[in-house]
């Protein structure tokens, strides 16, 4: 059976939901407290990594297959680029065209939260893809051949 022992699996079942919630907290409050898109995305990828360690790679890959992961990855980058470009409609590139709102509330600082969310999607899904690639392509064989002498498998 794949994965780790019963205790690690059960604790992973209990904790993973809250890891995802915490990453969302870091992202959504990125413009008020330290944190932001990149740390939030990394914590999202850590939750996925806990699932991969505890259950094997099928469980996270069943939620998000490789093809859809690359689409989502591109959507994150595209969202960030689109927010930057929409600034052009009001003036210049990266212009903060939304209302600034009241400081220290959740909906404030114009486009910053949206930028944070798209960065977190980009970072989280990219790191997910890195983890999936590391686990899938652990052994490298040249196409249609035996492993060469100097590369003894994984």
């Amino acid at each position: 059976m794949k994965g780790m022992s019963l205790i690690v699996r059960t604790i992973a079942r209990v904790v993973t939901t809250f890891i995802f919630l915490y990453s969302a907290y870091i992202v959504v409050y990125g413009h008020i407290t330290p944190g932001g898109g990149f740390p939030g995305g990394v914590i999202l990828a850590l939750g996925v990594m806990l699932l991969m360690l505890a259950f094997g790679r099928e469980v996270p890959l069943r939620k998000l297959p490789e093809g859809r992961a690359s689409v989502l990855d591109c959507l994150g980058a595209l969202g960030f680029w689109a927010i930057a470009l929409l600034g052009l409609t009001a003036g210049y590139f990266f212009l903060n065209f939304l209302g600034k709102g009241e400081p220290f509330r959740l909906v404030s600082a114009g486009t910053m939260p949206l930028c944070n969310i798209s960065i977190s999607v980009k970072v989280g899904v990219s790191l997910f893809a890195v983890l999936a690639a590391l686990s899938i392509y652990r052994r490298f064989y040249p196409p249609g051949g035996e492993p060469p002498e100097d590369m003894s498998g994984g």
């Binding site: 794949k2 780790m4 690690v8 890891i19 915490y22 870091i26 740390p39 914590i43 850590l46 990594m49 806990l50 991969m52 360690l53 505890a54 094997g56 790679r57 983890l131 590391l134 686990s135 652990r138 994984g154």
Partner: peptide, 23 residues
């Protein structure tokens, strides 16, 4: 965040010590 990272690092190294791959 540090507690989370420390836990994950321990679990990953323990799995490595068991002599098994990442997944």
């Amino acid at each position: 965040a540090w507690a989370l990272l420390s836990f994950l690092g321990t679990v990953a190294l323990a799995k490595y010590l068991e002599g098994r791959g990442f997944d």
